[in-house]
């Protein structure tokens, strides 16, 4: 029996496909987009995090740690990630829930049971389950065991992917996917490599293949100020959709937000866009217009924009 690693299961998810959904965030990602909103999804292994607001300083965790990875001083708890094995002893010892292991292993049955809990809501809303990440395609073999069970229960299944995986991985699960939420971030190869760490060619090929196979798609583009927000980029993505992806039903522009800073801090990582500005409402509306002018009608935007100063 295969096992998967998941960093979050979010119920009443209203942004990842049609209806009311449960989004399963799978841990591990081959991309390193500098704007990543879910840095806890990057590492494929479990990770320990510490919430300062919950800590009362009783040091139960330090006593419990067998490898000496924890140290508390006036700046807070320091986790030596080279030593920490994410064994969970400190989490169990902590009385306040200030420590948490991000990344839980699920076998097929336990994951299926969990996501079926909201079946009634999927039915009344025509919703379902979305597998997101991280990059869920990294765990396609696990998904290949989970998805048929969900389909047996009549669950609508969506896959939210960067598209960066060998085509044979898609082949493993395509038969059970109702909708793919597919990221197209940048149409300039060099920039794509610079800001995401990977070459987009495979991503584009896979998108075309999915469309050829008749898979329904929603294209999503994160709009990051100064990186992906040019009219040129949006126009190019739109062009790509029109020319190559006849199964795309909608095109969503997702405005950048900077709310993930605390997550980076907790993971001991640096968020390079900490000081980046937000998009403006007019800019988002303009990009929607650009895409429509290019010839794709069903475009929408959402996300955080600069507040109107009243």
């Amino acid at each position: 029996m295969k096992r998967g690693i998941v960093f979050s299961i979010q119920r009443f998810s209203t942004e990842d496909g049609p209806g009311i959904r449960t989004t399963v965030f799978m841990k591990g990602c081959p991309l390193r987009c500098i704007w990543c909103q879910n840095p806890e999804g990057l590492n494929p292994r479990p990770e320990l995090v510490w919430y300062d607001v919950r800590c009362i300083g009783v040091r139960a965790c330090i006593k419990a740690c067998k490898v000496g990875a924890l140290r508390l001083d006036e700046d807070g708890l320091h986790i030596d990630r080279s030593r920490c094995t994410a064994c969970g002893a400190c989490v169990k010892a902590c009385p306040t829930g200030a420590l948490e292991i991000i990344g839980t292993e699920y076998d097929v049955k336990s994951l299926v049971d969990e996501v079926l809990r909201d079946m009634v809501f999927y039915k009344t809303s025509r919703g379902g389950v979305t597998f997101s990440g991280g990059e869920p395609m990294l765990q396609s073999s696990f998904l290949a065991e989970v998805l048929p069970v969900l389909k047996d229960h009549g669950v609508h299944v969506a896959l939210d992917t960067s598209g960066f995986a060998p085509w044979r991985e898609f082949e493993k699960i395509l038969g059970w996917i109702d909708l793919v939420l597919y990221d197209l971030k940048l149409m300039d190869v060099a920039k794509h490599i610079e800001f995401t760490g990977v070459d987009p060619t495979l991503i584009w090929e896979n998108a075309v293949n999915l469309a050829k196979r008749g898979v329904r798609m929603w294209i999503r583009t994160p709009i990051i100020p100064g990186i992906t927000d040019s009219e040129e980029n949006v126009r190019a993505i739109t062009r790509f959709i029109i020319d190559n992806l006849p199964t795309v039903e909608r095109f969503e522009l997702l405005a950048f937000n900077n709310l993930c800073i605390s997550k980076y801090k907790r993971l001991g990582m640096k968020f390079l866009l900490e000081k980046a500005r937000l998009m403006k409402r007019e800019e988002m509306e303009n990009l929607v217009r650009v895409a429509r002018e290019e010839g794709f009608g069903n475009v929408m935007w959402s996300g955080m924009v600069e507040r109107d100063v009243r």
Partner: peptide, 21 residues
């Protein structure tokens, strides 16, 4: 708190982000 696609427990956000929300 949910800002369209983004979700977070409000109390785990930094003060600045809380003010923004």
């Amino acid at each position: 708190v949910r800002v369209t696609g983004y979700n977070a427990y409000f109390v785990t956000l930094g003060r600045e982000q809380q003010e923004e929300i």
